[in-house]
């Protein structure tokens, strides 16, 4: 079928699928939905480097691939360095006239573990060296590919296989690492959060991040029915609730200027987000209250940033 676009109000979305069907993501996975949308935003002129993780495994079981764009996976912890090499290689080959000048987007794809834990050093180095690339972190808040082990992106109170809730534990006892803040601290030109429940916002940010010169970072909330323990048809609602409760606000930071791209004057109580998920089912009211308090504080701080440094 020839490429077409489908109109959603003012938003145009290509019918081209850069990620083929037949992948092995879990039923109802929102991560692959986010990836599918991101690929639509990126288009054809792209090279993707992928860290080990759900996306890598579910899209590339030899001898088949879901990818219809050039794609490379080397290891878990080094995707930012691999894409640095892709970018540096393309740049010098074009400069030397060995390959035609062309705008090819260099995009790194990783999960939360590959980003905020084991891949942090390589990512910090790539940001600092100012490579022209877009880094997409698909955050499903634990090591889902290896069986739901906690990561530094796992939220407070979530039960995982290595920080399980039990008689003497609420599960995760640390607060989620704020990767966007860390990205912003590198003074990169663009950092943002996104969620597939807001597909046009997500696609706009991916497009913007790819087009901006220099490093860009988009942190994508990726609800996981398997690890978060909710019914397979609930991904879109869960994502919406994360945004509407302020648990995962949608914003962008462009050259240090903040903008909430979805702004809710009144946040819903976090309980509405926590309740449908098995990983939070053990939480008592006082713990939920503690989470509420933290979400309020973080959201107020974000609003203050938006007010102090508006886009």
């Amino acid at each position: 079928m020839a490429e077409k676009v489908i109109k959603f109000g003012k938003n145009l979305v290509t019918t081209e699928e850069f990620l083929a069907e037949g992948h092995s993501f879990c039923t109802g996975c929102a991560e692959v939905l986010a990836l599918r949308l991101a690929c639509k935003a990126l288009g054809r002129d792209v090279i993707i480097a992928n860290a080990t993780g759900c996306i890598e495994v579910c899209t590339s079981p030899l001898p088949v691939t879901s990818w219809r764009v050039p794609w490379i996976h080397t290891l878990f912890e080094n995707v930012a360095a691999t894409i640095s090499g892709v970018e540096a290689g393309l740049g010098i080959l074009m400069k030397k006239g060995r390959i035609p000048e062309r705008d090819i987007k260099c995009v790194a794809v990783a999960g939360d573990g590959g980003t905020s834990d084991i891949g942090m050093q390589a990512l910090s180095g790539a940001f600092e060296r100012n490579h022209d690339f877009l880094y997409l972190c698909f955050d499903n808040e634990a090591y889902m590919n290896t069986g739901i082990q906690r990561s530094s992106a796992t939220p407070y109170g979530a039960s995982t296989t290595t920080a399980p809730a039990g008689k003497f534990s609420i599960g995760q006892i640390t607060w989620k690492k704020d990767m966007v803040k860390i990205a912003v601290a590198h003074n990169i030109p663009y950092a943002a959060t996104a969620c597939p429940s807001y597909p046009f916002d997500l696609m706009n940010k991916v497009r913007k991040g790819a087009e901006i010169e220099g490093p860009a970072y988009v942190h994508i909330f990726s609800p996981c029915p398997t690890g978060w323990r909710y019914a397979s048809d609930l991904a879109i609602e869960i994502g919406r609730l994360a945004v509407e409760t302020g648990v995962f606000p949608l914003y962008e930071v462009e050259t240090g200027r903040y903008k909430l791209t979805v702004d809710r004057p009144n946040l819903k109580p976090v309980e509405e987000y926590l309740k449908p998920q098995g990983r939070f089912r053990h939480l008592l009211d006082e713990e939920i209250a503690k989470i509420q308090e933290r979400v309020n504080e973080d959201y107020a701080r974000l609003k203050a940033n938006v007010a102090a440094l508006p886009a």
Binding site: K4, E17, E21, T27, G28, C29, R36, L37, P199, S232
Partner: peptide, 29 residues
């Protein structure tokens, strides 16, 4: 079509959307 994680929903000639059951995993989204 937009929200299908499996890209299993296809636009047909008549403008309706059809699910390709070769791929659809039945998530219900």
């Amino acid at each position: 079509w937009l929200y299908c994680p499996d890209a299993a929903v296809k636009l047909s000639e008549d403008g309706y959307y059809e699910t390709d059951l070769f791929y659809c995993k039945g998530c219900g989204i």
